[in-house]
Amino acid sequence: MTGSPFLESLSWLVDPVHWSGPDSIPLRTLEHLGYTALGVLVAALLAVPVGLYVGHTGRMKSLAVAAAGAARALPTLGLVTLFALLVGIGLTAPLLSFVILAIPSLLAGAYSAVESADPATVDAARAQGMTEWQILTRVELPLGMPLLVGGFRGATVQVVATAMLAAYVGSGGLGRYIFQGLGSQNYPQMIAGSLLVIALALLLDLALLLAQRLTAPPGARAS
């Protein structure tokens, strides 16, 4: 019998059987990507406004830091199983967990983005007669945009690596390969599933890194 399960996982990946049909790699990857995007976007809707508020006003900073820290400690597996017991199988339970998982990075990204603006610059803007909203959107945000995108980057990588848990409670995604491989001792399939998750995470990481570079204001890009 052939040796390494790692080598076997490569032949699993290129086997045409796994590239078509309802359980195909492209389909599962798209599902995985969809769960990740949905989780991060919903989290962003909640976390970014709060982060911007905290960063701009400086109010409730310690509360935000503490909440983000506590949220980081929440074990995702526990959340997924608990929510699933409460709301049943399907996407709701894992999605809720992914949102919670994504919030700390996004929150931290948003408030540090706003905070990063030099206080002297902000005061200058205020002296010029800008409203607080204008200061936030025209001064603080453009300068801090790379940090905000950095928050998205951190959240996305975390969620994409964890989105396999959706398959634990009746949904799809690349976790299907991983759990099925684990349950049936098909390690090549499990490794292949993991490699796909890693590849997806790296691609997203690179894309967001690029976005981080591109969103830096031209004048600040030198650093």
Partner: peptide, 18 residues
């Protein structure tokens, strides 16, 4: 680092012993 962090933990726990 980012590569490492992207590895899902459950498969790593199963494969590392090998």
């Amino acid at each position: 680092s980012s590569l490492m962090y992207a590895i899902p933990s459950l498969p790593l726990f199963v494969l590392l012993p090998g």
